[in-house]
Amino acid sequence: MNAEHLPVPARPLLPDQFDTELRARLSALDAASDTHASEQRPDNTTLAYRADWKTWTGFCAQLQIPTTAATRGTLRAFVDYLWTREKRAYSTIDRKLAGVTVTLRQQYSVVVDPEATKAARELLKDYRKKAEEAEEPARGRGKAPAMRLDSLRLIVSKCDTDIFGIRDQAMLLLGFSIAARRAELAGLRLRNIRDDDNGLLVDVRVSKTDPRTVAVPYGTNPATCPVRAWKAWAEAAQITDPDRHAFRRIHHTGSVQPQGLTPQRAGDIITAAGLRAGIEVLFTGHSVRSGLATEARRAGKDRKAIAAITGHKEGSKVLDGYMQIVDQWDEQDNALIGIGL
């Protein structure tokens, strides 16, 4: 066909040319996508966004401005308010900015100017830099203490033999093995834990990082084997529905409930298990995650192999933070020992 006679492609419609029927279909698609996205979001993230919005509405009420007025000036003022008056941690303020912008977009169809949020975050970085230069104490809870293997063994040995103890053992050992955050433990469904000839394949889908699949082998010590611990819990709890939570609430009578654990409750169970074992360190929901990274590093495991379990990107500085220094006089943790001084 001669090029002169090629059909001219139709010019696409511009948004202001959409008819009523098309707008309705697009609106329905938006609503369906919002619902799907919210279902994928971890429960703790949803709760955090609600708290962020509550903080924002209180701030706007003080300034007597509408909550939809997220401009460069108001967002900077919000950062100043949280940093100077509320004394919030850097990471908390950064997340609250995200929570406000997400809520405005999803619930009010207000798209905040990216330059406005960029300006607010630049101010936040300036505040943190000045605080570091002034050698001010770091804000926030700090890093979760790593649950080392010796502590994990002791904690597991002190768990009761009843249904509560069987669940707690499985949570601790499987959580350690997949380097779980508390929300990841709470978010596991039965379908996410699959049997394999060599152990288990655990699909971590509810995660702050990218979804990952962790191959969990049988342990050499039956008392701390995560595979055996999981199978014991699954059998005792009679978990069969693949869409139900892997770890459940238990009534005080010992009856396993259909409801899953909240992230907060999953963390509380880990903390309580450490206290029952008489360990002075106050472990948190992230302690099993940090413990796996720390122990794997000390065992000489490849960094990529560790990142495959934790879900971190290659070269992640966050992963470095999980690999904690354990003994300042140990040759592995003290770079001065054994170098020839």
Rank of each mutant, 00 (worst) to 15 (best):
R153M: 01
L29S: 05
D241W: 03
I155E: 07
L123P: 00
S91Q: 07
V100N: 04
H5A: 13
L261M: 06
A10L: 13
G260I: 10
T92E: 08
T103E: 13
W56Y: 04
F78I: 06
P242G: 11
R85A: 11
P226D: 00
H5E: 11
Q107N: 13
D195A: 14
E39T: 08
S287D: 11
F18A: 10
F247T: 00
S255H: 12
T117K: 15
A308N: 14
V112T: 15
R297A: 10
R189K: 14
G285L: 01
R121G: 08
D52Q: 04
R303M: 11
R182G: 03
I239G: 05
K54G: 02
H36N: 04
L336H: 12
R303K: 13
A305F: 02
D30S: 05
F78W: 12
C159D: 05
G300P: 07
G175I: 00
Q328K: 14
T240V: 11
S157N: 12
D243T: 10
A116M: 04
R181H: 11
K317H: 06
G274H: 06
G187Q: 12
R88P: 02
Y90N: 09
C225R: 00
D241K: 07
P263E: 08
L172W: 00
Q169M: 06
I306V: 15
A119S: 15
G165P: 08
A170I: 00
L319S: 06
G278H: 06
D241T: 04
S38V: 04
K54I: 05
A234T: 04
Q264E: 14
P9K: 06
D19N: 15
Y90P: 01
Q106V: 09
K208H: 11
A299K: 04
E132N: 12
L47R: 15
H245P: 02
L282V: 15
D320C: 04
Q17A: 14
T35F: 07
K118V: 06
Q328P: 02
T161A: 13
Q40M: 10
E133V: 10
T68H: 13
A299V: 02
P222F: 10
S33T: 12
T92F: 02
A266F: 13
A305M: 03
G340C: 10
S287N: 08
M1A: 08
G175D: 09
I239Y: 01
D16M: 03
V216W: 03
I163P: 00
K96L: 03
P263H: 08
A273R: 11
C60V: 06
A305K: 07
D52S: 15
I270M: 05
L200P: 06
L97Q: 09
V156K: 01
H312C: 10
V214G: 00
I270A: 08
P137Q: 05
R298K: 14
I269A: 02
W83C: 06
L292H: 00
G73K: 12
A31T: 13
R249Q: 14
Q264W: 12
R95A: 14
L185M: 15
R41P: 02
A215Y: 00
V110A: 04
G338F: 09
L97G: 11
R205V: 15
K208W: 09
T262V: 07
